[in-house]
């Protein structure tokens, strides 16, 4: 193979595939960690005692307020000042999880607030503790309601994971950037990179849809267009 096709298949794809693996390595743990952080922060904001509630508010305000790139710079370039050295990969996962968790917490909080008071009363009336009520009655319902929003955040994470190359964690966009700079084939390279993200997002939306269907309960369904 020669020419454009040869370039794409022989040079571009191997690098991009390597980048894709790195991207997945960033996205999957960040999505999972971010989601659990979001559930934790959202629950603290709604049900926490004053100190917890307050800490969770500060967390969300900071991590939604600072631009993500600035957060990544702080984790990667700033922390060494304090004697903490993170690998580019660790700094990125940390940055993505914390930022993502702040957004998830907002969806979770909204869902928690939508649970009717009667559910809590019924749980208390059978002798459940506060924690049991939250874990076994409120969250199972709230997470279902938050799923569409949280899914949206995960889709968004897939795309902002491309910021990792700014702290030298070379993922999909980073690999693309390197090849493009070397070959000046910006159009070809970034078109292919874009298509790969599109594919990732499509697979994620499909998977999230499946998850929603699996968790759907009578009375909790909503109708996807």
């Amino acid at each position: 193979m020669t020419g454009e096709a040869g370039f794409i298949f022989n040079e571009l794809m191997p690098s991009l595939l390597r980048g894709l693996w790195m991207s997945l390595g960033l996205i999957v743990p960040s999505a999972v960690l971010g989601f659990f952080l979001g559930v934790l922060a959202g629950s603290c904001r709604v049900y926490g005692v004053r100190a917890l509630r307050w800490s969770a508010h500060v967390y969300v305000a900071l991590f939604r307020g600072f631009p993500l790139l600035v957060q990544l710079y702080i984790w990667y370039f700033g922390l060494p000042r304090l004697g903490v050295y993170l690998s580019p990969y660790m700094a990125s996962v940390l940055g993505f999880s914390l930022c993502s968790g702040a957004y998830h917490s907002e969806y979770i909080r909204g869902a928690l607030l939508s649970i009717k008071k009667g559910q809590v009363q019924a749980a208390q009336a059978i002798g459940m503790t506060r924690l049991q009520t939250i874990l076994h009655v409120i969250l199972p319902q709230a997470v279902r309601r938050a799923l569409p929003g949280c899914g949206n955040e995960i889709i968004y994470l897939i795309k902002y994971s491309s910021l990792a190359y700014m702290v030298t964690c070379i993922e999909l966009t980073g690999e693309g950037k390197i090849i493009a700079s070397a070959t000046f084939k910006y159009t070809e390279v970034f078109t292919v990179v874009g298509i790969i993200y599109l594919a990732l997002v499509s697979v994620a939306s499909w998977g999230l849809g499946k998850l929603e269907d699996r968790l759907a309960l009578p009375g909790f369904q909503y109708h996807r267009a």
């Binding site: 009667g118 019924a122 009336a125 002798g127 319902q141």
Partner: peptide
């Protein structure tokens, strides 16, 4: 509270659990 059962006007069944799950949850968790 385990010894004082409460029946509400609007039932307040746990919406995410089956009838069985609703009855079982107190036995399992509490």
């Amino acid at each position: 509270r385990q010894q004082v059962g409460m029946i509400f006007q609007d039932f307040n069944l746990f919406d995410h659990l089956t009838a069985l799950g609703n009855v079982e949850i107190g036995l399992v968790r509490v």
